[in-house]
Design a binder for these strands. Sequence first.
DNA 1: GTCTATACACTGATAGAC
DNA 2: GTCTATCAGTGTATAGAC
Lengths: 209, 209
Amino acid sequence: MIEEAKDTETKILDAAKEVFQHKGLTGARMQEIADKAGINKALLHYYYRTKDKLFEKVFELAFSVFIPKIRDIVLSTDKSVFEKIEFFVDNYISLLHKHPYIPGFVINELNRNPQILVGVFEKNIQFKEMNLFEKFEIQLKDEANKGIIRPIDARNLMTNVVGLCIFPIVARPIIQGIMFNNEKKEYDEFLSQRKKFVTEFIINAIKVN
Amino acid sequence: MIEEAKDTETKILDAAKEVFQHKGLTGARMQEIADKAGINKALLHYYYRTKDKLFEKVFELAFSVFIPKIRDIVLSTDKSVFEKIEFFVDNYISLLHKHPYIPGFVINELNRNPQILVGVFEKNIQFKEMNLFEKFEIQLKDEANKGIIRPIDARNLMTNVVGLCIFPIVARPIIQGIMFNNEKKEYDEFLSQRKKFVTEFIINAIKVN
DNA sequence: GTCTATACACTGATAGAC
DNA sequence: GTCTATCAGTGTATAGAC
């Protein structure tokens, strides 16, 4: 793998991602981003005008990494509910391990300023496609009628599935501190068995015996 | 209920809670806290020396609101596992509704600076009492042997229970935006049925049929 | 496109009068 | 204890040379 010479705009964006995702909008410093990108402050403004605009770009990219996956997986029509859940948990937790700071970043910035979502929605109409859940709702009703799963609401189920994947990542410092005596290695082991555990937990919760 | 004339120190702390919990350590401004407390900046430093010290105080109070509850409930020995779960979910979600900004605040600040926990632990040794989970683990093994519940790890279970309660609160802007077309009222209704839903979901997941 | 230098506003913190 | 005034440091952003 040869390290490509990245153009300045990309170098800035990469540095901005790292700094913003770790320190947040208000904690990030343009100077630190410039240092990390190997350029100077003035150049940041040349490419991205203001700190807010640079942040906006970083946020949109972070958001689009870990939201659309949900859509893709729920919409794969040829799978049963159990298969979809297994497939989702597996893929989503893998994704989270690759980008462990993104969920906390996105969640936090949205709590500070929910307004950001408006801009994101305008540029990505796909997020508004509510028929996504309507289709999934139909499948859930269908399998419930067939006696495969208990009757269950799609939004409650999706919230639980996503929450069970994300929570151990965003709340890592607390859980690791309280339940694992702050042992990083033990917590990594804990996380690595969550895929299997979470999948079984959810399927047991909704299946008819 | 008569509004008591609060002393200055309390007024400052109340104002600081509000500002820090909404804007975070780096986003909060001493000026805003002073304004909200109805005093001036100099007085903040008179009572709490520095911004960091004031923040530390606020963080510790926030942390102690929503962590010890877990301990209290898990340790109530006269309850079955099912009863504990129902009791916990009920009480914890009620608590979260009273302080909806605390979980996000605590989680975020800990991700930015996990070091804070060290100080909190030193002042509250109770958090380190790991036998809490060992006792619960014994009860889980016991009920599994009796064929009441499936064999399950205490830490995985606790993570799921707490996560299912907290996630819809901290991720509210995202879930409400994507699944509920940003309708506040609908999301409030959604939250109000979660107690029952989450309890049943977990019990179904672990009970033997 | 990239740099240095700098403008200008704001922030946390302190000095000192009352 | 509480205030006004102010300082020193830092932050974003821009001007202007190359």
